[in-house]
Amino acid sequence: MPRLDSILTGLAGEGATGALRAGRSGTVYLTEGRVTFAESAHSPRLEDVLTASGRVSAAAVQRARRAASATGAPGAGNGDANGAGNGDANRAANGAATDANEDGARGRTSHRPPDGGGALIAQGVLTRGELEFCVLGLVLDAVYFLLAAAATRPRFVPGERHWLGPYWYFDVTGLLRECERRRARLNDVWPSAQLDTLPVSPVPRLPGQRVVLDALQWEVLVNADGTATPAELARRLGRPAYSVLMAVRRLAAAGLLMKPPPPRPAAGPERREPSAPEAERPAADQPAGKLPRRASAKGRPRPSGAVAPARAGAAGGGWPAVTGDPSDVSMLIRLRDALERML
């Protein structure tokens, strides 16, 4: 099965426009060979992010969406100027970035009907810059998880566009490189993926006197209820799933999260130990205290048949090892002296 990244690279080469649907995992939208939007089942949706901020109501998102579908195919026939390139000083950072506003500038000056994003901006609920950042974050986040998910065979639907419209253009190679960088970064912070998909559960007590948290780590800790996984927390908080994952790994590296129970096999030998022959136990107990041993020899009700082995144990392995240590020798001499005085 062709991998998602190779399909994307192919579509980019063709300068394709449309939606690449990877089954239930998500969708990547391309505009003339560049990625303009993406959504993944593992990362928060646009609606989640917009409404979680408290700035944009769900109704406003719905209105914008309706406005976009009412004006027909958004952005149709505005691709001509694209090849001109942007002559200003701005260069694309890491390829995954900018170029965005050759379209933005055009959108404002041309007669193009407003797309969903334009409707949101027109409603005054957020600025163009905020929407651009939002799309930037969402797409990088979604593509990161889409690439990781082994999806069903992706299906390309030519011409299909997202209702929001294009607000950021990602060069596909740059996008793939950025995802690779993010994967490496995550492993630098805490090289284990074992907490990535488990419910986030903070340790009840700090393993130290004080700790420094950043803003997102605070949000993660405050909202961790012992049942929500990092992906669920991300959706609830309206934060990028990758950022939440990063916060979780940082918390784990700082020892602030409960480790999952270790794998079972270790329990076997541990259980067998107590069930070892009864006779060995008294012998093992002996070195701890000498007086109790004496008491046990006389008065303690002992398990039948255990007497002889217990004594044997006391005589043999029960004593501390004899050494040539001078303190041992002087102790023996003092003991002998004391015994002689009693006579």
Partner: peptide, 13 residues
Amino acid sequence: VVDHATGTAVAVA
């Protein structure tokens, strides 16, 4: 311009 949570370069000039 850098995204602080991820260290992603957003735009450069």
